[in-house]
Design a protein around this nucleic acid. Sequence first.
DNA 1: CATGAATGAGGCTTCATTCAT
DNA 2: CATGAATGAAGCCTCATTCAT
Lengths: 201, 201, 201, 201
Amino acid sequence: MTHSDFVPKPKKTPRQARARATYQAILEAAAHILEHGGPTALTTNLVAERAGVSIGSLYQYFPSKDAIIGELIRDLRREMRDDILAMAQYVDGHPLDFAVRRMVRAAIHHHVHTHGRADVLERLEAHLPPDPDTQEIKVEINRTVAGLLRKHGVEHPELAAFDLTNLVIGMAHPALHSGDTDFEALACRIDRAALGYLGQT
Amino acid sequence: MTHSDFVPKPKKTPRQARARATYQAILEAAAHILEHGGPTALTTNLVAERAGVSIGSLYQYFPSKDAIIGELIRDLRREMRDDILAMAQYVDGHPLDFAVRRMVRAAIHHHVHTHGRADVLERLEAHLPPDPDTQEIKVEINRTVAGLLRKHGVEHPELAAFDLTNLVIGMAHPALHSGDTDFEALACRIDRAALGYLGQT
Amino acid sequence: MTHSDFVPKPKKTPRQARARATYQAILEAAAHILEHGGPTALTTNLVAERAGVSIGSLYQYFPSKDAIIGELIRDLRREMRDDILAMAQYVDGHPLDFAVRRMVRAAIHHHVHTHGRADVLERLEAHLPPDPDTQEIKVEINRTVAGLLRKHGVEHPELAAFDLTNLVIGMAHPALHSGDTDFEALACRIDRAALGYLGQT
Amino acid sequence: MTHSDFVPKPKKTPRQARARATYQAILEAAAHILEHGGPTALTTNLVAERAGVSIGSLYQYFPSKDAIIGELIRDLRREMRDDILAMAQYVDGHPLDFAVRRMVRAAIHHHVHTHGRADVLERLEAHLPPDPDTQEIKVEINRTVAGLLRKHGVEHPELAAFDLTNLVIGMAHPALHSGDTDFEALACRIDRAALGYLGQT
DNA sequence: CATGAATGAGGCTTCATTCAT
DNA sequence: CATGAATGAAGCCTCATTCAT
């Protein structure tokens, strides 16, 4: 069993300020290119150029291109987890339908906010070896949502959390991608499906 | 306006039996590689090798790699349309919830049947120029589902058809991908969401 | 010493009418493609298609692509030789300046008539192994012009014939290629150079 | 309007010494191959091999094969222009026939010096999209020669410059190509034609 | 550490030619 | 003999990665 079975991670977590800035510049350049040019535009040389560093420096911070993608994915998942954790705390004590509505809007907001970067990264993730960190974050998200549902007496809360997550994303992404900008109307339609799933009339 | 604005199509339809076999072998090889190795594994040389033909033969029938992908997409969409059209005829005259349940099961069956090829192809489709044929088929599918919904008095039937399609796919794909094999249980969960969306308790 | 050192010739001179027609059709298709699409457009498959025969048949008549080009070159040279021979007979007995003027106009006419095919073929000829037949024809042409010049007391008639041929072609081709359509004016300018070369005021 | 309408130029001008050496090595290798093997021998892989660099390095400096050819053409034209400009200055104030004789010898010298590279490149140039730089140089050359002729009262100096250039090249190239090494004798024969064209007995 | 020149495996595609039917 | 399906060497080019300076 070699380590190549896992998504490579950054070579070193930079301590010094300048190094940290370079590191971030590379990630931001990669994210920008991914958003505007798609996966095929994401080349290491272009990332380095946009980040304002040499290709050699890029490889000082990331052992491979996949390591950059892996880090972008982890970043995105962490953001998502933080948003959901915050949201879960916020809705604590409120009725289930209120909680669901808030989560739906949070998901839409998150997607709009990441400007579709999520789509591309999810696609890329599928062709990368599984990354324990990313898995852990996903589990954390599922645990949080499941905990919320359990409090309201939903049965099989883990499965329900899984289904609801997919339901919301599955409906929101295509709609947003097709140019829909009436977020509230979209959210209401998703609400109906989600609440229907939960047996809430 | 150049032809490169469209998904290339096969350059010639084979006449002789041997040619037809070659043509099919290429498409099947491509589908197989796509399913098992993902998009990055789909190289023209590998497709030719797996199809048991020379690279030259491949280019007798397809002007480019994208033409192969385009044809796979069209094939898949045509199958989907045929399934949905048949299903729509079958449920004609039955109540809405019956129709929905049948459609959900048809979608799951279709995905299982195509062995997840749909996922990869949909992603590839996004990076290809729009193909009139494929668009036409999509419109046809939407029209069929929308027609069905309209008969039952659903408002905004086109939008509802769009949402429901995404809902079903969005829930079914991840579940099936995660190894879920209890299709009927999955279908029931999706039913709840779909009927909830439609306001059917 | 192998035969590959020479421009390949047609495999067989066809006797039957239909075969002869096919043979000509191939040559004409090749000439047409050369004129309209340039050397890079001249592919054996395209020639066969335009000639209305299968690629297999094409190789029945010509052992290789170069054999087709070689035959086109020979054809063109033969035409040129015939034109020059006829012209030489025609100007026989007239003064040198009259003869020169006629030859100049004949050269221009020939180039216009062949629609620039001559240019392309000459370029292709340079990259083909030398062909005895073509050489022989060139010698014949030179002999004819030289004979004409000798009659008028020109010294070193072979050399003069060589120089004059190049002078006329060298001036006419670029002018015609640049879109000049006033053939008579062009001819007069060439006359001055040619007569100057010959020491005729 | 795409960039493919123009002859591609080198993608980056090398800064470091090693880079400059590589850049030059590539151009020299290309020139050598062109002289000895003709256009069909000019493959990117062979150029890289002969230059002693990897194919990747070649594409660091030239975006395409045509860019290499384009640069060779520009180089040659620049040399030609410099030679002609120098010559024009040199003959300034001298009589027309002296000027013509010097230009003829300069042209022959130039052709010998470039070892016939000019022939092949001119042919290749015809199959490339027009290059503004090259056009500009050509115009400059014509302007220089025309200016010279105008000073001596030649009518239609632009046209005369065009004709004379073609006359000299048209006579010199085939003669030199056929193995003629008596440059002075050749020059004298060309003189007669050129002076005849200009009406100088 | 930073730089950027250099590398080369490997991807896509063309086209002259062969050969089974 | 005709057909056209099949072949595969060879060409162009990209891009992740290495390494000398």
